[in-house]
Each structure stands twice: as structure tokens, then as C-alpha cells.
Design a protein around this nucleic acid. Structure first.
Lengths: 201, 201, 201, 201
DNA sequence: CGTTAATCGAGACGGTACGTCCTGTCTTCGG
DNA sequence: CCGAAGACAGGACGTACCGTCTCGATTAACG
């Protein structure tokens, strides 16, 4: 009677971790190259990863699941720390996408955007990836309120959208063709902080 | 009201206007049916319109041009009128997408968004469709400044982005899953008008 | 009421005869190049014929059926005419495989041999292709008997085998590595005609 | 009867002779089951032998070598003895394939035939297996010449081909569908001995 | 009112990617 | 070290569309 192995291990050759990595890397590389999820062919992934197609299908049921895992492997390369004033912190956060290696992250995220509209699975993926970054921003806003820099009655969720949506949409759609990516975060933050109305409240 | 052109008239059987209409209708129907632009296949359009594929390619050089004409046929269902206060005007403009038949318009526009990143042609299409609506908003803002309701030094382009981007992105990506579409425009406008800072300027 | 068309014609673009030809040609070319039916890949046929795979599958259900039609298209490039004496006729018939374009025919036939063992369909194909050539030889033998050149009691079927089998097997298996293809027919015919025994009958 | 070698003995578990046997048996079984050599897959052999694929590759470098050993293990089940007259000897030799266990031998040989065309290795194998049998036949012919039964000027190599080729080809290709396997050797030998011509020489 | 020529639906065409299956090799484990 | 189980790279399979190209039949204005 052999010992009952609680950490059951299937017989045969185990799956190679190297292969997992090279496949996920290939997916991300293809995204940054091809700019679109449509360019993300299983066949292309296999070729780029130097892997047989069957090896991919052995691990993931289809392109969606593969995409999910690949992007999940990005792990938001550090949500970025914080500085001194609220204004500077916000500009830093919004502009972080412009610094390497975050650029790669944003590049991939903006490919994903369109895809999110389709499957709930991909939608959840996108939320999970982006949420930590939003939480950092919420924290900055809360500290601004605590420090008296921001009005105590602000709608934090709306504020986060106001700050992030313009930058994101500008990246994705090049909304304003002549708007400078570099200065946009500053202009957005300043305008949001000051407000438009003459007599606020 | 078909203009009968007596001057130049090519021989042979003229193209059927019914066919044009049914093709454009098929395109728009496919878009609102939740499909993305990728799912907008010429073959699917032909099938839905009850038309041969060649009949489509005879009129448009490719999917892009077809898409352009189809969306153009929507004719931005009236750029929306204006109300009393700046606040109410802005809320009205941002919320207009919720009223029928504007909903159909927005549904289609949000399918288009992702496509803009690719071809310059599609980009120009998108800009052309959206620009009139932005111009209305700019006008509202300018009148607000003139009326003393808004600060004279505001960055109008950034203000337009601040106002429109959150609503658009919420529609496209369902950015905040628990944010109510109905109340969002009001909350956005209020927050933008008031600003976040305790001591603006 | 339109005339009832007895020669019903399906709508749409008819299938191209050129394509049929190029596919069949590609099959035969691959056989003579690859020496084996195994080397006859549908994908390779499509590539060589400059044709999409679907175009092949639209016409034939699978490799077998394609092979059958391809070889059938060979049509034994003329069963060869006949000369003066029985001896010369037989040598000519056996040696015909060495002359173009018959060489191509034999090349393909010898690829088929192994395949014949498998499906009855392919077996029937092989028989149909080879039979006319055997009939020519039988005729030569019969005329030899009538002319008094051959013994009247000979077993014609066995005689045909005796004459053809060595040449065929030599081609297929290179049975005797040092036996010259060019002189073999002559030696075979002479030996068969003369017989081995000192006192025949 | 496993020879226990006391002299040199590699460390570790010794290879099981049972496994060797079961693999070779599996190969031969697959061949006689009507499969061609192409159907002789390492995977199929492993499955049939109840053995891992690696176990096979540890012993033989590839399919060719395995095939060589398998067929060699047949050991031409005794090159056949000799009888009284040349005619009877030849009929016996040609007909030996019909008696068990020779039938199995021929079955396997005819699978091999087609393969010979490919690799020189397999060609040599085939020659090696078949040569002893041909040598026996040559010996019979030579003794016939010496005994005065056969003409002294016969071409022995051609004679061997004349005698063996029809039987072999009939088995491999079922050349004449209605030719009886049992009587064929007798008819062949008789016809070859007598010759076809009225006036031999 | 017949000619004429561009229209129409239908579908074949060369491609490309799909997801499955099987090949021969390799890499683990337990015995 | 052996043996099984099975992962690995590669490649052909047959399917489904893509966007283009032909077909025969239709159809409306012109002569």
C-alpha cells in the first residue's frame, strides 16, 4: 500500500514553466506590435513563442482565456508611489503612463479597451487590472480632503472619472488631434481642481 | 425625394435605391445588435440585406467606406437645442444620448470608437460625426463665460473633454460597473463646475 | 411561364475547368516528384496548383477520391502500336515505359502499387488503368499463335505475367541492383520465348 | 532461454527480454494485420506491446532499425529443402509461401516492398532477407543445367526473375484478380520451362 | 418594341486562421 | 537504470469566412 499522496501529482512529463512564460510573452509582444487584439492569432502566438499550437490549446481553451492570463501576467508594474501636494500627485499618476515601462502597460491596455465590450470575462479582466491604479488615486484624493486641500463634499468616484477618462480617451481615440499628450495631465488636473464656475458651491 | 437628373444618364439598368437603403440599414442593424465593427462582415451585411456580396462592393470600395456612409446616414439626429442655465444645458447635452432615438446613435458610435485607432479614414469619419456636438457644447461654455457664470480663463478644450470623456467612457467600457447612467451627467457637470479644490485659483 | 430547362444549371459562378486541370496536374506532379502517395498532401496539392484548399474539398471528399480522378486523367498515353515479329513487338511493349511520355506514366503507377493493397476503390482504379496495356500484349501473343510463331497451347494469362512482372518489379523494387533497365526487356522476352527446358513439352 | 552473462554487467535494472520480444511481436503483428509500413507507427507499436514509446526509442534509433530487427527476427523460416526433378523443386519453392508459417513471412515481405524504394537502409534489409531464397533457386537451376534438364545457355538471373516476379507481384498487387494463388506456381514453372516459341533457339 | 448595358442573386475563387489529431522526441516520476 | 505516462515542436487535417471574381437572369431607358 503506497502512501496516499495528498499533493497528487499526475504522471508523465510535467508542463514546462518556460513554455508558459514564452507563450504569455509572445501574446504581449504581439499586442504591442499589432496594436489590436485581432492581430493576436493563435498561430502567430505559437510561431512567435516557438511553440506548437497544441501546446497552447493544452493550456487554454481559446483566445479569450489566453488573453486574460497574458494581461493578468502584467501585474500593473507597480501602482506608483506618491509625492507632496495633491496637484503634483495627480499629475504624476496621470502622466505615469508616459514613463517606461508603464508605456508598455498602457499600450496593451488600450488594445484591450475595444475587446471589453464583448465578453463579460474580458470585462472583468479589465476591471481587475485597472482597479489598483484607481485605488491609488482615490487615496490621494482622500488625503487631499484630510489635509484640507480638497473640499470635503467631493464625489470621489466622479472625480476619479473626471481625471482619468480624458487621458485614457485621448490615448485610445486621439480625441483631440492637436492636444499634447505631455501637457494634458497638468491641464486636466488644474481645470478639475479649480472648477469652471465663477462662484463654486 | 429622388432628384431626376436629366443631364447625364448612364445606360443600362440603374442602381436600385431600395438596395442602397437595405444595405445601409443592415449595417446599422448589425452594429446595434451589439456586434463590434469586426463582426460587421460584408457577408453578414449581404445576407441581412438579402443582397449579393458584389452588389455591396460595386457601391463601396471596402468596409471602411461602407461604414462611413452608413453612419453618415444617421445624420446626428439634431445637434440638440439649448436651455436656460449653463448647468442645465450641459446636463441636457450629456444626457441626450439617453433619449431615443439618440440611444441608437450612441450605440453605434461606441462601436466605432475602437476602430478609430486604425485607419485615418475612419478617424476622420468619427471626428466629423462628433465635432458638431462638441461645437454645441463649446458654444454653451462660451455663453457661460459671457454671462459671467463661468470663469473667463477656462481652457475650453479641456473642459469639453472633462465633460464628455467620462460619459463616453462609461458607455463604452462600463468603467464604473455600479455608476448609474441616468445620474452620471448631473454629477459630472456639478463636480466640474464646482471644482475639487478648497481655494480655487 | 419560363421554359422548363431540362439541362438544369445551378446558379452562381460555375466551376472552372482550368482549376480542375491544374489540381489534377499538381497531384500527378507531386507523385512523380515525391515517389510516394504519402507525400501527396492536400495542402501541397493546393500550393502547387496555386489553389485554395477549399477549392479542392469543394470537388473531392478526400485524398482518395482526388487520387482516383487524377490517375484516371492519365488515360494511358496511347497503348502503343505494334511492329513486325512477335519478339520485337514484345520488347517494344515492355520497353515502352522507358520512352517519354510513358516514363511519367510508369513513374506514377509504381507509386500507386502500394496503395492498391488498401482500399478496393483504389484497387479497381489500378486495374482499370493497366488493363488496356495488357490487352495489347494479349493481342500480340494471339497473333503470334495464329502466325505459327508461338505454340498453340500457351497459357496467355501466365505468359503476360511472365513478361510484365519482371520489368515492373525491377522498376518498383530495383530487384536486381545491377540489372540494366535498358536490356532487361530483351533478355526477358528471349528467355520466355525460348524456355528453360532442354526438351520442351 | 536468457543467457546470464556473469562477466560484464551494467549497473541498474537490466532491460527486460520480455519487452524486446513483445515489441518485435507487435511490429510483426501490425504488419500482417494488413497495414503498410506507413501504418506501422511507433505509437501503435508501443500501444500494442503495452510499452512506453521511450522504451522503444531506447533500443532502436528509429522506425527503420526497428523494422530491420523485427523482420530479421523472422529468420526466413528455413530456406526450404529440395526435391527430385527441377520442375518439382521450383514449384515447391514458389509455392512455399502458401504454407504456414511462410505465409506470414510473405505477408510481411509484401508490406516491405514499397518501402524499399525509399531508404538505402531498408533496401539492403530487403535484399538481405530475400537473397538466401533466391540463392536456393539459383542452385536448383544450376543443378538442372548440370543434370541436362535445362539448357546450358540460360540466363540464370533472368530466369530467377521470371519465376519469382509473377508470384510476388500477384501477392502484392493481386495483379490478376481471378488467378488462383494455389495453381499459379505450377503454371508459371511449366510455361517458363517450356517457353512460348514454336522453334526455340 | 426590341436593343443594350449595367444591374441583381448566387456562388466559385485564392487565401488565412481555426481547433483537432498524430508524429517522433523529450522529460518527468515511481519501481 | 528501467518503464509508463505524457508534454513537447511540428505539421496536415477539414471547416469557415474573408474579399474578389465570374456567371445567367433581370430590368429599365434608348433608339
Amino acid at each position: 500500500m503506497t502512501t496516499v499522496d495528498t499533493s497528487t501529482r499526475s504522471p508523465g512529463r510535467p508542463r514546462s514553466a518556460r513554455v508558459d512564460e514564452s507563450i504569455l510573452k509572445a501574446v504581449l509582444d504581439l499586442l504591442v506590435e499589432g496594436h489590436t487584439v485581432e492581430a493576436l492569432t493563435i498561430e502567430a502566438v505559437a510561431a512567435k513563442a516557438g511553440v506548437g499550437k497544441a501546446t497552447i490549446y493544452r493550456r487554454w481553451p481559446g483566445k479569450d482565456a489566453l488573453l486574460v492570463d497574458a494581461v493578468r501576467s502584467l501585474k500593473g508594474p507597480a501602482p506608483t508611489p506618491v509625492g507632496a501636494s495633491v496637484r503634483d500627485d495627480l499629475v504624476l499618476l496621470l502622466g505615469s503612463a508616459r514613463k517606461k515601462p508603464d508605456q508598455r502597460f498602457v499600450r496593451i491596455m488600450s488594445c484591450l479597451g475595444p475587446e471589453v465590450q464583448r465578453s463579460p470575462e474580458r470585462y472583468r479582466l479589465y476591471q481587475g487590472l485597472v482597479e489598483p491604479r484607481r485605488e491609488v488615486m482615490r487615496e490621494v484624493l482622500r488625503r487631499g480632503v484630510a489635509a484640507g486641500e480638497l473640499r470635503p463634499d467631493i464625489d470621489i468616484e466622479v472625480a476619479v472619472m473626471l481625471l482619468t477618462a480624458p487621458v485614457l480617451i485621448q490615448r485610445m481615440l486621439r480625441w483631440h488631434p492637436d492636444l499634447d499628450d505631455a501637457t494634458l495631465p497638468g491641464r486636466v488636473v488644474d481645470t478639475v481642481l479649480a472648477g469652471l464656475a465663477t462662484h463654486p458651491g
